[in-house]
Nucleic acid binder design. Structure first.
Length: 747
DNA sequence: CTGCAGCGTTTTTTT
DNA sequence: AACGCTGCAG
C-alpha cells in the first residue's frame, strides 16, 4: 500500500491521503490527475476506511471508466465489476433499471441515441403537421436537451415569445411520445434518475448511506444536471453543518473544458468550491509529459484567457526541441510535408542516432473531421499505416441500426422508432401512404404502430395484406427466438428479417455484410464478457426480468463507440482535437492552424467562443511529449471551393523564441517542390478573376489602415470598377473594397 | 410504391 | 466534395 503512495509527488500524495472531506483537485494537463483519483480509491479501500461497496466513481467516457477499473484492479485486489464505476449515463441507467417502477419506466425501456432522438422529433413534427422549416428538428432536439440538462421539464419551461411557447409545447408532446413508447433519450436517463432520487426520500437515503465517497473525473465537463445529481448523493453542508451523505472528491482542469458547446459548465468548479465549503483545493502543477518548450508555448496561449482558476504548469525535464511551425501553400502541401516529417521521425529523426518513433506514437490532430481526408490521402500514397478515430461508429452504421431495430421491436412492440425504421426495410411494399394511414389509426386508438398494424392486418384490404405479412414475420421471429441464447437470437433475426439477403444482393453490400457478422460476434462477446454481477441494483434488474437482449441493446446505445476495428496495430493516429483529450503521444502535429478553421469561424458567434477554441488549442498542444508541430496552409479546399487563409491567431500568441519555422528543404532537399514552401511565393491564382493592378492577386497578403492585415480572397471588375474581397480575420471579418478608394498595401 | 435526380448544407461530440 | 433529404417520374 505504501508502495503506491511512494510513487507520488507531494501534492499528489496530499490529495490521495486527504481525510474524508470534500475536495477539489485542480490538475493541469499531464500532471497525473486520473492517477490521483484511482490511487485515492485504492488508498481508501486498502486502509480499510471504506469498502468497494461505498465508492461511486464517475467519468464521461466508457473508455475512461474501463481504464479506471483496470488500473484500480492493479492496485488493490477488488472485484471492480461490483463497484459503481462508470459514466454518468451508465450509472443512471443502472439506477433506473433497478428502480424502474419507482421511476415510472417500463422494465425493458430502450435508449434513444442522438440519431434516434432526431428521428423521433421529425416523426412528432410530421404527426402534428408542424412546418419543420419553422421548427428545425435539430434545433428542437437541442432545445429539448438543453432544457433537460438544466433539469427543466416542459411543464416548468419558461417562454416569453410565441415561437418559444410553441417549442415548449412540442417539448411536452415529445415527452408524452417517449413515455408512450417506453423510450428514454440520453438526457432523460440523467433527468429521470435525478427526479427519482430527489422525490423518493427513502431511496435517496439508502444511496446516501451507501456511498461514502464519490469521485468525479473531468469535473470541468459536468453540466448543471450532473452537478445537481451529485449534490443529491453528496449533500452540501447546510448552515455550516455537515449534511451527511458522501464526500465529493472532484478532479478537473478548467483549462481543458472543451465541451461548453454542449452544456458543460466550468462554473461548476467554482460553485462546488463555494457550496461545499471546500477547504482543500489541491493544485497539481508539475507536468510529467511534455518538454519545457512545449509547455511554455501552451502556457503562453492559455494565459490569454480571462477568468481562469489559475495554475501554471512546469516541468523539470528540460526545454527539448523548439515547437516547429510548418507553413504550406496548400492543404495538399501541408499534408505532404507532415507525412514526410512523420516518416522521418519513424526513421529515426533528424539527429544522428535518434531513436525511431513507433507510428502509434505520432498523432495528427485537426479541428474538424473533414480535414482527415487529405491527410489520409497522403498517408495512403506514402504507404504509411494509419488509423482514423471518430467518424461513423459501429453501432451507428445504418445496417447495424436496422438490425438493432428488429431486435428492439421484438423486445418492445411499442417502440415506434424501431417500427418505422424497418417496416419497409428491406422494401416489402409498405409505402409512405400505408404508413401514414397506420399512424392516423394508431393516433386515434392511442396504440403503438405495431399494435395498429396487427389490427389493420386482421381487417383486410390491399395494403393490409403486406402489413399482415410484416406482423406475421415479426411474430414468427419472436416465437423462433423465444428461448434462444442472445447470439443465436441475433443470427436468426439477421436471416429472417431479410437483411442479410438484402445486402448480399447489393453491389456495395460487402462491408455491410461484414458488419452484420461483426454484430453477431459482438453479441457472443457480450455474453461471455458480462459475467454475473453481484450488486443489488443489478440483481434487482435481473429479477425484474431484464433480458440479455435488453442488456445488449442498452450496451449498444450507451457504448456505441467501443467497437472499432483495427485496434492495437502500429499505425499513425488521426483524430480531432476533441477526441485526443486524455491521450498523449511522443510527436503531435496540430494541423490546419488557420483563422476561420482553428479558431473555427462559427465559434466567434458563441459566448466565450474564442476562449473555448483557445482551450482546445491548449489541449492539442499538451498532448505532445517530445515534439510538437503546428501547421497551416494558405489555401484549403473546403466545401468544394478553395479558401484563402491567414495563419491562426494562436500561432501569434506563442513567443517567437519557442518557435522554429521548419525548413524541410534543409532537412531533405527536394528542389522540385521548393516554391511550395513559401506561402508568399507567387502562386497559382487566376480562376476567372478580373485583372488586378500593382501586383495584387488572389491570396495576396495586404494591409489596410483601418482593418489591419488581411488576405485577398476574391476579385471582380477592372480598372476603376475593380473590387477585391479581403479576409481580415476574426477582428474585422471579410469585406469587399473598391480598389480606387481603399488604401491597400501589398505585404 | 420505388428509384433517381437535383438541392441544400456543412464544427467540435459523448452518452 | 459528399451526404442526406425532398420531390417527381415511372
Amino acid at each position: 500500500m505504501s508502495d503506491f503512495l511512494s510513487r507520488l509527488n507531494d501534492p499528489q500524495r496530499a490529495a490521495v491521503t486527504l481525510p474524508a472531506v470534500h475536495a477539489l483537485v485542480l490538475a493541469g494537463a499531464g500532471s497525473g490527475k486520473t492517477r490521483v483519483l484511482i490511487t485515492r480509491i485504492a488508498w481508501l479501500i486498502a486502509t480499510g476506511q471504506c469498502s468497494p461497496h461505498n465508492v461511486l466513481a464517475v467519468t464521461f467516457t466508457n473508455k475512461a471508466a474501463k481504464e479506471m477499473q483496470a488500473r484500480l484492479a492493479t492496485l488493490v485486489p477488488v472485484n471492480t465489476r461490483s463497484m459503481w464505476i462508470g459514466t454518468f449515463h451508465g450509472l443512471c441507467n443502472r439506477l433506473l433499471r433497478a428502480h424502474h417502477r419507482e421511476a415510472g419506466l417500463p422494465a425493458q425501456f430502450q435508449i434513444l441515441d442522438a440519431a434516434d432522438q432526431l428521428a423521433a422529433v421529425k416523426r412528432l413534427l410530421k404527426n402534428l403537421n408542424i412546418d419543420s422549416e419553422r421548427f428545425p428538428p435539430r434545433e428542437l432536439c437541442y432545445f429539448i436537451n438543453a432544457h433537460k440538462e438544466e433539469g427543466i421539464r416542459a411543464a416548468q419551461a419558461e417562454a416569453f415569445d410565441d415561437h418559444t411557447r410553441r417549442r415548449v409545447a412540442l417539448y411536452a408532446e415529445y415527452e408524452a411520445q417517449c413515455r408512450r413508447e417506453g423510450v428514454a433519450d440520453f438526457a432523460e436517463l440523467l433527468l429521470s434518475s435525478y427526479e427519482l432520487l430527489s422525490r423518493n426520500e427513502p431511496l435517496r437515503r439508502h444511496y446516501r448511506e451507501r456511498f461514502r465517497h464519490i469521485l468525479v473525473d473531468e469535473f470541468q465537463d459536468t453540466n448543471l444536471l450532473q452537478y445537481r445529481w451529485l449534490k443529491l448523493l453528496a449533500a452540501a453542508p447546510e448552515n455550516g453543518a455537515d449534511a451527511g451523505g458522501a464526500k465529493l472528491f472532484a478532479v478537473g482542469d478548467d483549462d481543458q473544458s472543451i465541451y461548453a458547446f454542449r452544456g458543460a459548465k466550468v462554473g461548476n468548479m467554482r460553485d462546488f468550491e463555494r457550496e461545499f465549503r471546500v477547504e482543500n483545493v489541491i493544485r497539481l502543477e508539475q507536468n510529467y509529459r511534455s518538454h519545457g518548450n512545449i509547455l511554455d508555448a501552451a502556457n503562453a496561449i492559455i494565459k490569454n484567457n480571462r477568468d481562469r482558476l489559475g495554475k501554471n504548469l512546469w516541468t523539470d525535464t528540460g526545454a527539448g526541441e523548439p515547437v516547429r511551425v510548418i507553413e504550406a501553400f496548400s492543404d495538399a502541401d501541408e499534408a505532404r510535408m507532415i507525412v514526410e516529417e512523420a516518416q522521418m521521425l519513424m526513421n529515426g529523426g533528424p539527429e544522428e542516432g535518434e531513436a525511431p518513433l513507433a507510428p502509434d506514437q505520432i498523432a495528427l490532430l485537426y479541428r474538424s473531421n473533414a480535414q482527415s481526408r487529405i491527410l489520409e490521402h497522403q498517408l495512403f500514397s506514402a504507404g504509411i499505416p494509419y488509423r482514423v478515430y471518430g467518424g461513423l461508429r459501429f453501432f451507428e452504421r445504418q445496417e447495424i441500426k436496422h438490425a438493432l431495430a428488429y431486435l428492439r421491436l421484438l423486445t418492445n412492440p411499442d417502440d415506434d422508432t424501431a417500427f418505422l425504421r424497418i417496416v419497409n426495410f428491406p422494401t416489402r411494399g409498405i409505402g409512405m401512404r400505408t404508413v401514414e394511414n397506420l399512424q392516423a389509426g394508431a393516433a386515434q386508438t392511442h396504440s403503438s404502430l405495431y399494435n395498429a398494424a396487427a389490427g389493420e392486418g386482421r381487417g383486410g384490404g390491399r395494403s393490409a395484406a403486406s402489413l399482415a405479412a410484416f406482423v406475421r414475420m415479426i411474430e414468427e421471429m419472436r416465437k423462433q427466438t423465444q428461448n434462444l441464447p442472445l447470439p443465436q437470437i441475433v443470427a436468426h433475426v439477421l436471416a429472417a428479417s431479410g437483411l442479410r439477403a438484402h445486402y448480399l444482393a447489393e453491389k456495395e453490400g460487402q462491408e455491410r455484410l461484414e458488419n452484420l457478422d461483426e454484430l453477431e460476434n459482438a453479441a457472443s462477446n457480450f455474453v461471455s464478457e458480462s459475467g454475473w454481477i453481484e450488486d443489488e441494483a443489478q440483481a434487482a434488474a435481473e429479477t425484474s426480468g431484464i433480458s440479455a437482449l435488453t442488456q445488449f441493446l442498452t450496451h449498444a446505445a450507451l457504448e456505441a463507440g467501443d467497437h472499432q476495428a483495427g485496434e492495437g496495430q502500429a499505425a499513425l493516429q488521426l483524430m480531432t482535437v476533441h477526441a485526443a483529450k486524455g491521450l498523449e503521444f511522443d510527436a503531435v502535429f496540430v494541423t490546419g492552424l488557420e483563422q476561420g478553421l482553428f479558431p473555427h469561424e462559427n465559434s466567434v458567434t458563441e459566448r466565450d467562443g474564442l476562449e473555448e477554441e483557445r482551450r482546445l488549442m491548449y489541449v492539442a498542444m499538451t498532448r505532445a511529449r517530445r515534439r510538437l508541430y503546428l501547421s497551416w496552409a494558405q489555401t484549403r479546399l473546403l466545401h468544394g471551393q478553395t479558401r484563402y487563409n491567414l495563419p491562426s491567431l494562436f500561432i501569434e500568441e506563442i513567443p517567437a523564441a519557442l518557435l522554429s519555422t521548419l525548413n524541410t528543404i534543409s532537412l531533405k532537399p527536394r528542389p522540385d517542390r521548393e516554391e511550395t514552401f513559401r506561402p508568399s511565393a507567387k502562386g497559382r491564382e487566376g480562376n476567372a478573376t478580373g485583372a488586378l493592378p500593382q501586383g495584387l492577386r488572389i491570396g495576396q497578403n495586404v494591409s489596410h489602415p483601418k482593418f489591419g492585415q488581411g488576405v485577398i480572397v476574391a476579385a471582380e471588375g477592372s480598372g476603376t470598377e475593380s473590387r477585391v474581397q479581403v479576409n481580415f480575420g476574426s477582428r474585422a471579418g471579410t469585406k469587399w473594397l473598391a480598389l480606387e478608394y481603399a488604401k491597400l498595401t501589398p505585404l
